[in-house]
Design a protein around this nucleic acid. Structure first.
Lengths: 359, 359
DNA sequence: CTGAAAGCGCTAACAT
DNA sequence: ATGTTAGCGCTTTCAG
């Protein structure tokens, strides 16, 4: 217990300057001007104000000017909600990704944001935290708040996506293809990428590769692993060691020792983050790259050029995926067909983390 | 000119399977069930349906069940637009950042997205591409589509922000403080960070620092530079060389030679990206780090631990900024005061890119 | 070229 | 506990 006066203004523990300044709720200022008020002020009907605000050319210039003046004077801003309700569309599209910290998804986010922004559309973003069920819930939710959806959903079962197809349309899928899904998909040819990588490595004399596995639920991982196995099976005298790993720097870092112990002369990492982690781990273990072992990544994230040594990796068009996703979605929203699926062909970027197999 | 039959179905150049599947426009399916239809089907009034959908407990369980069944059967999904209009709020908040490829903003995006998501709010994201005027336009636009705004606006003049304050409220500012602005701000104490860095470096015997400047319009750059100058001025025998640089990898990379030529024994980079670029550039020039020159970054981006050598840097709570921004915004949206501004105190992370000054 | 009027689909008093 | 009745603010036929 504390004796004393108490209850002075200062005791309320709030800075006086900002008190009450945030009292506004909702999308519009409390006493915001409505179209009616503007119409009244300008001495015209609401319809006319609406016409002017939407740039209809059929309004007499003089009236239009009066309306604009009134709107200006009243700080009029049309209500987005009312507009959406009347128009039946929101002017917003949405993107759902599993993980915002992954450069892959940051890339499409960026591409999509810019393309949609240029078209005057707002972008809603939701992150599912790699949870397959959450992905679909969020997708539905996001879609309800927008006119169309771009979905990066590496975890959700294809079957589930097919069920939801109606509720999600119009939508486009990125980084993934789902058979029988009535939505266009923009993906990456993992097979081709892996094959280029393998060809590069075998060309350098490597016969024993270690694969640093991605998350088991990831569809990219599945595709890359399958391609690797196929390549291994097709090449006599070729050994493939699969090492459990993950998708983050730390996962790669932690897998350096197993790599060393398995005796592989080259490691194919699930992605660039894993690869750089491995690079660091190997370095700490006194292993020279590419002298003792070669290392490759996948994705070509911005950092890949700045690892030591710079990382040989497979480049995929991350931003471009976002841009094209917008175009597809836009077509769909206009009732056009979604067009053919496209599978981007990755490009092998040979830098300094790969070299001849040690004899 | 080409002779032949022409005009066959295949010539329309569209995959038949997806034709017409994207014909849906707007936020709701074409013939979507409305609350009225559900009410009719369940034999109750719309008010009752509304009550059930919003979890009002004052509905007789039996009726509630009937309503839910009807809703289910009709695939009823409430119209977000209609709800927003009636309620006066959208259930969405927005974030405006200058650059989505910057890890700093990716951090707040992530923190904000998760916090808002947990609270069942949608998140609108807009990127201004580092354009000061665009920043404010986008902010207004984003705010109109949501109930509140988080603004990372390193470029826009403080005066402009003060003018706009009413139209943007409720909003919170991140990575920046603006005097006299009636909005809470969450920022980083650049001064303190620089001072720790300088103390660390001078403790190691460095007397000549090179600063790799950030973008001149950046408020973080301004703060860091000012702190550095103050430190230099306060230390006899201390030299500070300011090298124009930028904020990206390549900028740092390109500044390696000037660094070498200026004769500094330590370089303080505007941020981690610049620092890693410099690291690589220096390495290419045969300069040893930290043997010949020490290098420091700022921000502690995920990659900083994995540069060679691992980067000594100043860590700032990027995700935390996003999380707390949500809390502030939430308070504001509930008519509470915005509370006191907070300035996060960064933490010096000493890794291996700094060492004793060469004698 | 402009105005009147009928919604868009939902919520929230206010009755009952 | 449930139904009735007004709107929320804008767009859009339809007349004139």
């Amino acid at each position: 217990m504390r004796a004393g006066t108490g209850g002075r203004a200062e005791d309320r523990d709030e800075p006086s300057s900002s008190a009450g300044s945030g009292a506004r709720r909702g999308p519009r200022p409390a006493g915001a001007a409505t179209i009616s008020r503007v119409a009244e002020a300008a001495g015209v009907s609401r319809a006319t104000v609406s016409r002017v605000m939407n740039g209809s050319t059929t309004v007499k210039p003089e009236l239009a000017a009066r309306v604009r003046a009134a709107a200006q004077a009243l700080d009029y801003e049309p209500s987005v909600a009312a507009r959406s309700l009347a128009l039946g569309r929101t002017g917003t599209i949405s993107l759902v990704v599993p993980d915002l910290s992954n450069p892959l998804f940051q890339g499409v986010l960026r591409g999509l944001s810019q393309a949609a922004g240029k078209a005057g559309r707002q972008l809603l973003v939701a992150e599912s935290n790699e949870d397959a069920e959450e992905e679909t819930i969020l997708a539905i939710e996001a879609r309800r708040n927008s006119d169309g959806l771009v979905l990066a959903s590496p975890r959700a079962p294809g079957e589930r996506l097919r069920e939801l197809s109606d509720r999600l349309a119009p939508f486009v899928l990125v980084y993934r293809e789902v058979r029988g899904l009535a939505a266009p998909s923009l993906s990456v040819d993992n097979d081709a990428g892996i094959n280029e990588l393998v060809a590069h490595l075998t060309g350098l004399g490597h016969r024993h590769l270690a694969y640093l596995s991605g998350p088991s639920a990831s569809s990219s991982h599945a595709a890359r692993l399958a391609a690797l196995r196929a390549a291994a099976a097709g090449t006599p005298g070729f050994t493939l060691t699969e090492l459990p790993c993950g998708s983050m720097f730390d996962d790669g870092h932690a897998t350096a020792r197993p790599v060393l112990e398995c005796g592989a002369s080259a490691v194919v990492a699930f992605n660039d983050m894993v690869a750089s982690g491995a690079l660091t781990g190997l370095h700490e273990l006194g292993v020279r790259v590419p002298g003792d072992v070669s290392v490759t990544g996948f994705d070509d994230i911005p950092f890949a050029r700045y690892t030591t040594p710079p990382l040989t990796t497979v480049s995929i068009p991350k931003n471009e995926l976002g841009r094209q996703a917008w175009e597809r979605l836009w077509a769909l929203m206009n009732g056009e067909s979604g067009g053919y699926n496209v599978r981007f062909q990755p490009r092998l970027l040979i830098r300094d983390s790969t070299g001849p197999a040690p004899s």
